[in-house]
Amino acid sequence: MSFPTTVRIFEMSPRDGLQNEPGELIPTTVKVELINRLSQCGLTHIEAASFVSPKWVPQMGDASDVMAGISRQPGVIYAALTPNMKGLEAAIEAKADEVAVFSAASEAFTRKNINCSIAESLERFAPVMETARHAGIRVRGYVSTVMGCPYQGEVDPQQVARVAKAMLEMGCYEISLGDTIGVGTPLKAKRMLEAVSKEVPIDRLAAHFHDTYGQAIANLYAVLEEGIAVVDASVAGLGGCPYAKGASGNVATEDVLYLLQGLGIETGTDLQQLINTGHWISRTLSRHNGSKVALARGDCHE
């Protein structure tokens, strides 16, 4: 057992948390305030926007306005998801500190979503990587469906390793391993990580586990034991799972932080401020707060 002494939390709520939010478009002012509140919690990495077609992801259609409206704090990285060159160019213009590209470990998932093979999806990122490099912007890579796919079911850990290695070789500084539909269990998480870590150093990997089946915290504990020191999470558990109707999505940042504090792992993040922020955004969106820790601690109105 070898827990890291410090863990970096990568806050996903402004992007992965809000992109699937149903109903009316969330006002830009709400997104900006969410990011500003998060940046006061001690978080150092916040995925603030996604530069994708508003036709496909309407909630992210105001990405440039969001990036222009935030109050940037020293030491905080404001990242953006950029699926193609058009997205990258918009992110650079909006002064994103770093960007992210994404693929999947499942051929069925990739074909269903972007109508091409995994290899073709990676090839499409070559000009994005090159342009980002020339612009001096770091690129993070996401690998989806690392422990299961809504279309093909089981996913071979060796396939996850191959995709992660390809992203590393393309120039991604870090690879985030995503249990997109939250079907993983601790043993499956360990076996997946064992395969990937043979191809990608553990200090270049992050865990992005969804909580659809209530296993995210257990799965995170399992990979923390193996040395994972970067965790993606979303305040108040913001974000749904579009492949499992009625299911929750992202693991709540508050719950992750409570786990890490219990293990004596430093994060530099203020739990009470996170709880307050989670309650605020839950009230603002008139949605249930998905954090068990926040619900146990109660609502602290500012």
Rank of each mutant, 00 (worst) to 15 (best):
M1P: 15
M1C: 08
S2D: 12
P4C: 07
T5C: 05
V7P: 08
I9E: 00
F10M: 13
P14N: 09
R15W: 04
N20V: 02
N20I: 00
E21Q: 14
E21N: 08
P22T: 11
P22V: 09
E24T: 11
E24M: 12
P27H: 03
T29I: 00
T29R: 14
L34N: 04
L34R: 04
L34K: 02
I35E: 03
N36D: 15
N36F: 10
N36A: 01
S39D: 06
C41D: 10
C41F: 02
T44N: 01
F51S: 09
S53K: 09
K55S: 04
W56D: 07
W56R: 11
M67H: 11
G69D: 07
R72T: 10
Q73R: 09
P74W: 02
P74T: 10
P74V: 06
G75V: 03
G75P: 11
T82I: 14
G87N: 11
E89N: 14
E93Y: 08
D97V: 06
V99K: 02
V99I: 14
V101K: 10
F102Y: 15
F102E: 06
S103W: 05
S106M: 06
S106R: 04
S106W: 02
F109A: 03
I114H: 11
A119N: 08
L122R: 03
E123C: 03
A126M: 07
A126G: 01
P127A: 08
P127N: 09
V128I: 14
T131K: 14
R133T: 14
H134G: 02
A135I: 14
R140E: 04
M147G: 13
G148K: 08
C149V: 14
P150E: 05
Q152N: 07
E154V: 05
P157R: 01
Q158E: 15
Q159W: 06
A161Y: 05
V163G: 05
L168W: 12
I175H: 09
T180Q: 03
V183M: 09
V183P: 00
V183G: 00
G184R: 03
T185R: 15
K190Y: 13
M192C: 13
L193S: 01
A195F: 12
K198P: 10
E199D: 11
R204K: 15
A206S: 15
Y213C: 13
A216F: 09
A218M: 08
A218T: 07
L220T: 13
L220A: 05
V223F: 01
E225Q: 15
E226N: 09
E226Y: 09
I228L: 08
A229V: 03
V231C: 14
A233S: 15
S234Y: 05
V235N: 03
V235M: 05
G237F: 01
G237V: 12
L238I: 00
P242F: 07
A244S: 13
G246V: 06
G249R: 00
N250S: 02
N250Y: 02
E254L: 04
Y258H: 14
L263S: 06
L263W: 14
G268I: 08
T269Y: 07
D270Y: 04
D270A: 02
L271A: 04
Q273P: 01
L274V: 00
L274K: 04
L274A: 02
I275R: 00
G278E: 06
R283P: 07
L285H: 07
R287D: 05
H288V: 10
N289Y: 07
L295N: 10
R297G: 00
D299F: 04
D299V: 12
C300Y: 11
H301D: 12
